[in-house]
């Protein structure tokens, strides 16, 4: 206690800095633990198809063959690399939500077929 009192009198800024950094560290540690806990639940891991994703990224992440994405996009081959769904929707002049809906439907259809086989 005498040490603490001494520090508070003579090194106030350093003491305050120490308390602040210690609190931040604990905060970050708790946040990491909470996030790790949250994401360990498979239910919270399910991503949604979003505008920034590319057809290849969706195929990889949802573990569906490229043909599923080709069918959803109505193309014989996947579009150029580095085109996001947002880009594709803009090219075609369709709303992004509509494109995403078609893709999600196609993935669901493929998964249902897989389940039957």
């Amino acid at each position: 206690m005498r040490r603490l009192a001494y520090l508070w009198r003579n090194h106030r800024i350093a003491s305050l800095a120490f308390a602040l950094v210690a609190a931040l560290t604990i905060g970050f540690a708790i946040r990491s633990a909470l996030f790790a806990f949250y994401w360990s639940d498979p239910a919270s891991r399910d991503q949604q198809v979003q505008g920034w994703m590319t057809p290849r990224y969706v195929a990889h992440s949802w573990k569906v063959p490229p043909e599923v994405m080709q069918a959803a996009l109505g193309e014989v081959a996947l579009p150029d690399r580095r085109r996001t769904l947002e880009d594709i929707a803009a090219d075609r002049g369709v709303p992004l939500a509509e494109l995403i809906f078609v893709i999600e439907t196609e993935i669901a259809r493929f998964r249902a077929e897989q389940a039957v086989e």
């Binding site: 520090l7 090194h11 350093a14 003491s15 800095a17 120490f18 950094v21 210690a22 931040l24 560290t25 970050f28 540690a29 946040r31 990491s32 996030f35 790790a36 994401w39 891991r45 991503q47 990889h60 992440s61 949802w62 573990k63």
Partner: peptide, 30 residues
């Protein structure tokens, strides 16, 4: 396929690690 999960966990963990080093350094000095 779990980009967001990895990003949040890694960024918080690296903040905690760096904070720990500074805390220990300041603690030793004090």
């Amino acid at each position: 396929d779990q980009l967001e999960a990895v990003a949040t966990i890694l960024s918080n963990a690296s903040g905690a690690a760096a904070g720990l080093v500074v805390t220990l350094g300041l603690g030793a000095w004090l």
